[in-house]
Nucleic acid binder design. Structure first.
Lengths: 213, 213
DNA sequence: GACCTGGTAGTCAAGTTTGAGTACCAGGGA
DNA sequence: TCCCTGGTACTCAAACTTGACTACCAGGTC
């Protein structure tokens, strides 16, 4: 599973209603073009595809005031919201060595409750540990390590990555347990999108958390 | 860049001449179906595509003795070998957060000389460190960290992964400097493919390094 | 007044990946 | 003998991704 659907659904959801270019800008604002496949083509494709599948509703809009071609605005449906939450939970839980999926999920983790987030992350740690056990048992059989030659370095690398991922996840769990961040149902949420007409992102060096949706 | 081309070129090269199913079996033998997108469709597509691009020569073969449809055998060309080495060097050097690309490169690293491998890996470490500096400077601007809210965890995760990757690479450099493994020009190479008629891989729990190509 | 840059918004063809097939044969039961 | 499993070898449609491209307008500039 790629991260694009989660990112797009999450972006549309935070806006309530958004057109492709807006989503594209949000993802850039989050840096997603650096750590995921959030290119224009993928974003527009995902929007169309998910509209076809009933997760978004497409509204045709007259050519905008600022010029350019006619836009299509998208609104998330109940089915889309379900899909969003499913993807989010899966992405937090499952260890599939795809850093972009986890990154995307981190951006939305506060849409869940604090307790649920902690449970999912703890399941993630358990998953990594199980995976580690399975791999080391399967690939270092009777005749001991070293028989693999340099091929063993591949496994070594996986295992190192898994350990590092587990360690990081435990750190995050501690921070969340310690009260960090504002989760669902804990008051004014942190807003990470650009509202219509807001200035460019990091070029100003400042975020504007004052305009909730 | 995905790992599939490197994997397929490397597999064909080790055999001298191979058909798709053989490549597919090798990749499974290496565990590549677990850490890369080495599915049948991708493998056959890569073979066809690279044949079209002159990196492989396709030979049509009569239906094999053991039944099944007619096979196509592929042979690597000079251009293909150049591409293979280029991909291999790039994959070792560049830090693009794609673990499958590095894993594939590790499987072939001994096709280079020991000195060159060390240089490439040291460049990899330098690349990771530069990337880390750039990211931390860009995303933690004037008003300090913490302004990012939970979004900062994304960056935290990237940085943690980068540090872990650098540390692992330094470890590998030490092992190689310490004389581990047999590199190009250092005698009988380690052979990691199944020759025609060899038994199944890990099901027997034993490797057969006795039949060189 | 013509041109050029830059932002807005999106399209398209080509390439890649996925998952589910297809076709064939051998060997082993019932 | 008929069917069923399992291995060999590959194909295909549908989905996804990529990179380059289009089209439009505003505002400056020469």
């Amino acid at each position: 599973m790629s991260a694009i659907r989660l990112l797009v659904l999450g972006a549309v959801r935070q806006h309530g209603r958004a057109h492709g270019y807006q989503v594209r800008n949000d993802l850039e604002y989050w840096g997603a073009h650096e750590w995921s496949n959030a290119k224009p083509g993928s974003i527009y494709h995902a929007l169309k595809q998910m509209a076809k599948q009933g997760m978004l509703i497409a509204h045709e809009i007259a050519p905008s005031t600022v010029g350019g071609p006619p836009r299509t605005e998208y609104e998330i449906t109940e089915k889309g919201t379900q899909e969003y939450l499913t993807l989010l939970r899966e992405s937090l839980t499952s260890y599939d060595q795809k850093p972009d999926v986890l990154s995307a999920a981190l951006g939305f983790v506060v849409d869940l409750g604090r307790e649920e987030a902690l449970e999912l992350l703890e399941e993630r740690v358990r998953g990594i540990e199980e995976w580690r056990t399975a791999v080391t048992e399967h690939y270092v059989p009777a005749d001991g390590p070293g028989q693999l030659g340099h091929i063993g370095e591949i496994m070594n690398f996986w295992v190192h990555s898994a350990d590092s991922g587990a360690e990081w996840t435990r750190g995050l769990i501690q921070r969340i347990k310690g009260g960090a961040y504002t989760f669902a149902g804990e008051g004014e949420p942190f807003v990470g999108v650009l509202s219509a007409g807001e200035e460019n992102p990091y070029s100003t060096g400042e975020t504007h958390p004052e305009d909730a949706e």
